[in-house]
């Protein structure tokens, strides 16, 4: 808890959810308009790093289901798997397939989202932790 910034400390909780929901909105909006997994992922990183600065890295880590590196790996696996659907249908790797509104592109974008979120928080947390404990 950062005592010097009471306003930020109190606003961090709602702000986190606002940013996170915005990141999801940008992710899904990216389907037909500017947006997408990458920008959505960056917004999620902003949410996580806000929480990590205000309430400590441990609190931010608890909001992610997996450790950052594993989250990023899961994201890339998801993206690759979405590309592997096409070869099963006899088309080149990474050709995307649509079923009405649903498509493998969505899985790919979600993978990118997770990869960005995991990879960047993986960079930020150790740096913040180092900051918090001067050796």
């Amino acid at each position: 808890m950062n005592e010097r910034l009471p306003l930020l400390t109190n606003a961090a909780g709602p702000l986190y959810w606002l940013l996170f929901l915005a990141s999801l909105w940008v992710l899904f909006r990216g389907h037909n308009a500017p947006g997408g997994g990458f920008i959505g992922g960056l917004l999620a990183v902003a949410a996580s790093s806000l929480l990590a600065t205000v309430r400590g890295v441990a609190a931010a880590r608890r909001r992610q289901w997996l450790a950052p590196v594993r989250l990023a790996a899961a994201g890339v696996v998801l993206a690759l798997l979405s590309g592997l659907v096409a070869p099963l249908a006899g088309q080149p790797f990474l050709t995307h397939i649509w079923w009405g509104g649903l498509s493998t592109v969505l899985a790919f974008d979600l993978g990118v989202f997770l990869a960005v979120w995991g990879a960047l928080t993986g960079y930020i947390y150790p740096l913040l932790e180092e900051e918090a404990s001067p050796s």
Binding site: L66, R70, A72, A73, V76, V77
Partner: peptide, 9 residues
């Protein structure tokens, strides 16, 4: 690539 990612998981 998949081996690397699954191993990371």
């Amino acid at each position: 690539l998949l081996t690397a990612l699954l191993a990371a998981l």
